[in-house]
């Protein structure tokens, strides 16, 4: 999933200060799963903003709404009847959702309420970790299902480096050395010889090196 974290309240107040009527939008997808911008968080933020604004003597009107999927134009259309009642929109979706709103409602100021962080997985309750950087050319089949692009601090293709100590990365004892994990996994799969193969320098074109990427599925595109 795409993970996100809510921005500090002070930053959000600065965004909405000039406006009286705010449409606060949540998204039912990734940001709901990582508890950053779903229906519940929309409610909490609305109360927080109301209280902070009242404290400073400003009365604002906040309308709450959570879309099924904010990165999908089909669902964004649902905002048409309510958009004119808002001076500005604050979106708790990931950056994709915020941009979709900005693109659809060109004359409406749109502000992000979360920092979109990474593509990751839940490690345990309340903890998410980065797993994928969307490099466009998946290597997991070669590296035992562990990604050196997302999980090695140096994105080494032929690791580990000298900073790998007892399975941990030199940047922090909290970070596993991805190449130690790769080695352990290849070993348990009986594929140690694969580790000895030298991987050539990565082609970054598919990873955004050639600019913004787009997928066009001829079988589906209208």
């Amino acid at each position: 999933m795409i993970t996100a974290e809510r921005k500090p309240l002070e930053e959000l107040i600065e965004y909405i200060k000039p406006f009286k009527r705010i449409l606060l939008l949540g998204c039912n997808e990734c940001v709901t799963v990582c508890s950053a911008g779903g229906r519940k968080e929309v409610g909490l933020l609305a109360s927080g903003l109301q209280m902070a604004m009242l404290k400073s003597g400003n009365n604002i009107e906040i309308r709450q709404h959570t879309l099924e999927r904010q990165c999908d134009p089909e669902y964004v259309e649902e905002l048409v009847p309510m958009i004119n009642d808002a001076d500005a929109v604050m979106s708790m979706a990931c950056g994709c959702g915020v941009q979709e709103i900005a693109m659809r409602f060109k004359d409406k100021p749109v502000f992000p309420a979360v920092n979109t962080t990474f593509m990751g997985a839940s490690e345990r309750q309340g903890v998410w970790a980065e797993r994928c950087q969307g490099c466009g050319n998946c290597l997991l089949g070669e590296t035992g299902g562990i990604c050196p692009i997302a999980r090695c601090a140096k994105q080494l293709m032929n690791g580990p480096c000298g900073g790998s100590v007892t399975g941990k990365c030199e940047i922090s004892d909290d970070v596993d050395c991805a190449w130690q994990l790769i080695w352990d996994r290849l070993k348990s799969l009986g594929l140690e010889e694969r580790y000895m193969e030298i991987t050539p320098a990565k082609d970054w074109r598919s990873g955004g090196g050639s600019g913004p990427r787009k997928i066009i599925r001829e079988d589906l595109a209208e």
Binding site: K202, W204, R205, G209, S210, G211
Partner: peptide, 10 residues
């Protein structure tokens, strides 16, 4: 970079 002679570079 995409127009360079090392277009696969990061």
């Amino acid at each position: 970079m995409s127009e360079s002679d090392h277009s696969d570079a990061k």
